[in-house]
Nucleic acid binder design. Structure first.
Lengths: 336, 336
DNA sequence: CAGGACAAAGTAAGCGCTTACGAGCGATGG
DNA sequence: CCATCGCTCGTAAGCGCTTACTTTGTCCTG
């Protein structure tokens, strides 16, 4: 076995052979260098270099019973939200020496299968609330590894991180009502599409109640830009009466705003429009988009850190984490 | 060994025991179901379900000598560019049953080490041109697995995908010169920061030569929004004379544009500003940002597909791939 | 009813690495 | 001068899975 390095991919055996040591020593040189005599170490290192040896991660994982990787399951990567989340998470994971495997579910048929498979390649999985996974799947993988939820405020059984939605939506709505005297507000977004949206609408409703107003039903829409024209059209054609549109996120808000302006409706003079997420575009449009900022990157990082803790001590008590948001007032609500 | 499933994580042994079959049969049930009698199959599947068994990916990888994963090394995930790229890549990889492990290098100290480690966990690696990796590292990992370059037009030795930069930059510049009569154009961005930028500047210069003009040296700047204010200030304070700013990407352009306006300089009346990437914000700002659109998601997908081909047939001839870009003319250049 | 063909399932040999354990050996101290 | 200690390093036993090969059992066929 084990040629002197002529073989395609060098293994720990090739290195050992060529350096005249046992594979144990090669392993030691790489993992606990100070347990081997400098002379030996150098010799081994040189061979490692010559051969371009890179230890096989799978073999290592198998031996140490740890994948040194986390799985992150997101619906997609559009908009700044998920990208920031991933950025934060990757940092947090990398700080602990783990890589992250991303699984984007949008447009994929057998999400449950994919998630299960993923569960076999990582030490822990973070599941975004917006991805549709069968409860039985979640239950199954939880038996194998820690699972953390994200923005899934209504799945109590899984430890999760959510950003505050209800109160910020309430604050935003109140701002429109009290400061700008809006009375015919509509919420744009489908509450059943994600827990996030559900909670934002709940805050919208709560603010109405507090002000003695009645909240109109939500105008259904996805998170995507594509839905903007349709919503704008409803209003332009008079099918929707509103002096304020509270949109589920920035993409939607920007798109609506643009098509409203194009249709001759002035924002914010005739209609206030607000978003959610505070992405880059929100700062650059005119009028500036009033929106809610979430510490997304930080959120990602915290989730990763928590996951690491969970992996070290699986008995640690589950907790629900709530992260604060900030209302960012610009001009699209009517403020100067 | 192998309890009947009481142990923490069920393995193929626990399943086999409980279903009264050998581990080979369990494996078959999972990988080649039709090679086992339905009755047996069902019995095994039921146990799999009961125990919540998920095969260990590392063990499988070791046995089949394939990680069924690709590595994607990016500097960061800011802006739409990398996120789209990743989205496309993940799709392409998933179509081939592979997951993708992302490595974000910005802010990380030992990138070379991380890349090497990554090389041990995946079947192939895609390296963004903008990440700083030592040539020796690249050489080392290339001996172990296929490496594909991205937007690294000047690293000839590695098979790579680049989007067209020179001609589009030339076209963009010509547009400013011929259509809008600009004469004092400046390129904003550091050509040495990435091959992309280098080529865009080259196109900028080429257009000047073709028009019998002399191209001014570039105004150094990174890809980030943060550099905008400084650049705008140069112009506002008269240290920079220009009637057109060709920026290396959208973030930079948007930021510059905004700070220029804030400083009382009218865009595009006094100064044209252009970007690169055609992100969401480019469509929503006023004036609309004239920029260059790249088929980024498609690019990502193609790279993934190529990687899969390379993995199947490592002898396939390396080729350089060039993807087209499109000039997107909006108002920031001076067009109505 | 013997013999062969074929389907189903078991046996066992790895895949490449980590690490507990122990052997060898020069240094140390009583 | 010999028992001990401590440092280095080799031996070998897995880690959990896949799969070539073999065995066993069934069902035809002539």
């Amino acid at each position: 076995m084990s040629s002197d390095g002529t073989g395609r991919r060098p293994t720990i055996y090739s290195v050992a052979d060529r350096a005249q040591v046992s594979i144990a020593t090669v392993s030691r040189v790489l993992r606990r260098p100070d347990e081997v005599r400098p002379a030996t170490r150098d010799r081994v290192l040189q061979v490692v270099d010559e051969l371009g040896y890179v230890p096989d991660g799978a073999a290592r994982s198998l031996a140490v019973k740890s994948h040194e990787a986390h799985g992150l399951v997101l619906p997609e990567l559009g908009g700044p939200y998920y990208a920031d989340l991933l950025t934060g998470y990757e940092q947090g994971a990398a700080d602990g020496g783990a890589s992250v495997v991303v699984l984007l579910t949008d447009g994929k048929a057998d999400v449950d299968l994919l998630v299960r498979r993923l569960a076999g390649r990582v030490d822990g999985i973070v599941l975004m609330g917006a991805v549709q996974v069968a409860p039985t799947t979640v239950a199954a993988i939880r038996r194998k590894l820690p699972v953390l939820g994200l923005a899934n405020s209504h799945e109590e059984s899984v430890e999760s991180f959510v950003t505050e939605n209800v109160h910020s939506a309430e604050e935003l709505t109140r701002h429109l009502v009290e400061v700008h005297g809006r009375r015919r507000l509509r919420f744009v977004g489908s509450p059943d599409i994600a827990d996030d949206v559900h909670d934002r609408y709940a805050g919208f409703v709560a603010a109405h109640q507090a002000a003695g107003l009645e909240a109109a039903p939500p105008v259904p829409a996805t998170f995507r830009e594509e839905d903007g024209p349709r919503v704008a059209a409803l209003l332009l054609e008079g099918e929707l009466e509103a002096d304020a549109l509270v949109c589920a996120n920035d993409e939607l808000a920007l798109s609506v705003m643009r098509h409203l302006s194009a249709g001759g409706v002035s924002v914010p003079d005739q209609v206030s429009v607000t978003g959610w997420d505070d992405g880059m575009a929100a700062r650059y449009v005119t009028p500036g988009l009033t929106t809610v900022s979430q510490p997304v990157r930080e959120l990602g990082r915290q989730v990763a850190v928590r996951m690491r803790a969970l992996l070290e001590d699986p008995t640690s008590v589950p907790e629900q984490h709530l992260l604060p948001t900030t209302l960012v007032v610009r001009q699209s609500c009517g403020c100067p």
